[in-house]
Nucleic acid binder design. Sequence first.
DNA 1: CGTTACCGAGAGAGCGATCTCAGGGCTGGT
DNA 2: ACCAGCCCTGAGATCGCTCTCTCGGTAACG
Lengths: 331, 331
Amino acid sequence: MRRPTLEAVAARAGVSRATASRVVNGQTTVAPQIRDAVLRAIDELGYVPNSAARSLVTQRTDSIALVVSEPPTRVFSEDPLFSTVIRSASLELETVNKQVVLMLASSAKSHARVERYIAGGHVDGVMLISMHGADPLPSALSRLRVPVVSYGRPAVPVDIPYADNDNVGGAETAVRHLVEQGRRRIATIAGPQDMIGGQDRLTGYRNVLRDSDRRSIVAVGDFTRESGAVAMRQLLGDDPQLDAVFVANDLMAVGALQSLRQAGRRVPDDVALVGFDDIEAAKYTEPPLTTIRHPVIEQTAAMVRLLLDLFEGLPAEPVVLPTELVIREST
Amino acid sequence: MRRPTLEAVAARAGVSRATASRVVNGQTTVAPQIRDAVLRAIDELGYVPNSAARSLVTQRTDSIALVVSEPPTRVFSEDPLFSTVIRSASLELETVNKQVVLMLASSAKSHARVERYIAGGHVDGVMLISMHGADPLPSALSRLRVPVVSYGRPAVPVDIPYADNDNVGGAETAVRHLVEQGRRRIATIAGPQDMIGGQDRLTGYRNVLRDSDRRSIVAVGDFTRESGAVAMRQLLGDDPQLDAVFVANDLMAVGALQSLRQAGRRVPDDVALVGFDDIEAAKYTEPPLTTIRHPVIEQTAAMVRLLLDLFEGLPAEPVVLPTELVIREST
DNA sequence: CGTTACCGAGAGAGCGATCTCAGGGCTGGT
DNA sequence: ACCAGCCCTGAGATCGCTCTCTCGGTAACG
């Protein structure tokens, strides 16, 4: 009742195990006639290679962990970031016949589990997506001598290749755009400051404001829509005269738009708004949102390529993708 | 430079491989002194058992696939269903030392990959969550002789144990509640009719309407907030006199509330509203939503237990959990 | 003191694949 | 006709672990 083995296939086809193995692995050095016999046997028996046995000798598993080191509430939130990364990483790796295994690592306990799982050789490599500074996983995993790459620059300095987008530059572009529009009092709704993206985008904002001799007006959100709405109300209270806001992500910008509307401010006449990410929803707000495009799919592809390079023993240097200003009607 | 093997641990501790193995697996028949020596060796070498080798002989992997057979847009939508199932299944299985491997099976191509992955023995069992009728996975997997359980009754009749909630009964309770409130024209916003939950909840609605001699008024959504808003507008157009709506899930109910407000109808004075699922957001709507509690965590736990029963060779019968009316202020 | 019982430890056979190496059969060149 | 060389195929080792079986040693009992 056990699943058929290669042995059984070989016996049925009247060849040796070695030959059957060659056929299974698509080697060309097999006579067509024998090849067909083996294929028929495989088909008749419904043979599928035992992955454990194969991994044992090849030292490969052809599966790759995507470790999402965030509380599930964020992973499965309105923000399409994680889902896009998961989906495009899967797609990208399918083309090279590798399977993505998604693992959530929210608590400290699950960190340990993830570490053990990876140390146990279940996967050939790890893609890490983790935005929080305190995260112990990047360094822990890089110690395991397993190929590891990261989506986004790890918050702790650790020597693993990563693919990032130019958060600082993007934020600078956004704010410079507002300056060029003649806006005088430019506020920002920053992201959480324990996330690298939140920090970098705030840095970009500060850089331009300093250079253009303006006062910075900062409220901090947590990248959710609701927090954007709250932060906007707060900003309006702090400085009713503000005439522009750079919001660190589009989701918060959607919330901010809502608050602006409730406060009776017209966008962009009274207040101009620039977001960050260029999520789908940014096209459908009222008015459509000027934003900085965050190339998630390309960045994911770059990360996957880094990992594949590591497999090949090639040098893998961090990649930082450029961002791009997308002008719509909110400025 | 290879990872240390049990052999190395045994050598360092001055014992045989078998004894080292006993210690690793927590067998008690080892003298404390030797045990400590082995543990020390493990620690010093940083030994972690090779999972492929272990699986090869034990025929177990201690990991379990959670196959989500839905387009990613739904999986990672506002609806907390999937995330809750994923999280609580992980939690539940951690207690028995098993790892959940999440696999998305959206396209036909990824179905094939998932099947191969599972047939290859990567996992000991499969938990399937799939709402669509046309889904070929339930039957495909059940043919593989791998233990399979399902979250929710599979749409195609196939002999795999499942844990479901009482969709028909819940819908009946909801509509009966509206009848008892003296509502005369009770409409429904149904879920997609290619999903079992969508079908069953519509059936429940129809059952009660038939028994109470009322006319049914149906609009169909797709379980998203937006579709609920659209469906509500449509219902108001179809029958401006309606005084109650049963909405097949809370997310659509949130959208419906929005449309009702825009149309100037007061809830519950003009129109009473009952949702389904009792998601967190239902508590925070204006007014808070009367709904039917869908016990997601319990249902997931029941599903996990079914799978564990299958592992033990115990009989595993489908489980249907009762739902419960939660009365808030929308009725 | 001898015998039985039992407990703890080691030897060795697998688990199911891959892969190296050697050898048999052909082809082709001389 | 002979031999070199190539192409296929098969034998057998190996990956790292578990688990059964065996055996040495000590305790218990008569």
